[in-house]
Design a protein around this nucleic acid. Structure first.
Length: 257
DNA sequence: GTTGAGCGTT
């Protein structure tokens, strides 16, 4: 009985959706259920979570059966400290279909399935739209993360409070990257070649982090040949220095190789 | 292991 939203939206014909923000990432529906259920009849609780990691996004949706109970819960649970974090309870402004709702109450869910198709307006692509926005917002949060927090600490709260307006485009310079998958992937690849890592200051000869190495190619004479022909800066040094530093005996060097 | 603006799924 704790599986809320696991079977999709049960029945939200006459339910009021409450948006719970500022909740911890570890808070689950089970933790919110007893809290909200105490103030009213909770028909469903849904907590959006990431599709890749599966972690909670930090907010939850609580559906009440009656508006009066929902309102009460908002006033009672709004500002309550849950799991050590102050949560913010308020009526949902948008419905599951990205449609504006009235005080958390869903006006109509599926206008199309209601009898004949009176509306000739085609249904917009909710999935595609929400996917795009979701990924973008997520990456932004993850990207900024603690870097800004350490800089602004408590001031950033005031800053974002004023600039919280949805009208403002939080897209600073996210780039045309569709997501962070490609971005991270690209950077990772680049790192392999060039030392883009600040911590990586040692020119580790191990350029093959993958344990899976192809013996055929690795042991191939071509590879070795190239390696010798394209030696490191140190090896590229004149023979006198290299030989004198590495092998005091030129004879040994010859025998070794 | 981390994070913190905001509005949702089988």
């Amino acid at each position: 009985m704790s599986h809320f939203g696991r079977s999709g939206p049960p029945d939200i014909r006459d339910t009021y959706s409450l948006l719970v923000l500022n909740i911890t990432f570890r808070t689950t529906a089970d933790d919110l259920f007893p809290l909200f259920d105490k103030y009213g009849k909770v028909v469903d609780i849904f907590i959006p979570r990431d599709r890749r990691t599966g972690d909670s996004r930090g907010f939850a949706f609580v559906r009440y059966k009656y508006a009066d109970e929902a309102q009460k819960a908002v006033e009672k649970l709004d500002g309550r400290t849950v799991d050590g974090r102050e949560i913010m309870v308020q009526f949902a402004k948008y419905g599951p279909n990205a449609e504006p709702i009235h005080k958390g109450r869903i006006i109509e869910i599926f206008p199309k399935t209601r009898g004949r198709s009176r509306s000739r307006s085609p249904r917009p692509r909710y999935r595609d739209d929400y996917r795009d926005r979701d990924y973008r917002r997520r990456s932004r949060s993850r990207s900024r993360g603690r870097y800004d927090r350490d800089r602004y600490r408590g001031k950033e709260r005031d800053y974002r409070r004023r600039s919280k307006s949805r009208s403002g485009s939080p897209d600073y310079h996210r780039g045309r990257g569709r997501g962070r998958y490609d971005d991270e992937h690209r950077r990772s690849r680049s790192r392999s070649f060039e030392s883009a890592s600040p911590v990586r200051r040692s020119p580790s000869p191990r350029r093959s982090p993958s344990p899976r190495r192809t013996p055929s190619r690795d042991e191939s004479p071509e590879r070795r040949s190239r390696d010798e022909r394209s030696p490191s800066p140190r090896s590229v040094s004149p023979r006198g220095q290299r030989v004198g530093s590495r092998s005091p005996s030129p004879r040994n060097s010859d025998a070794e190789e």
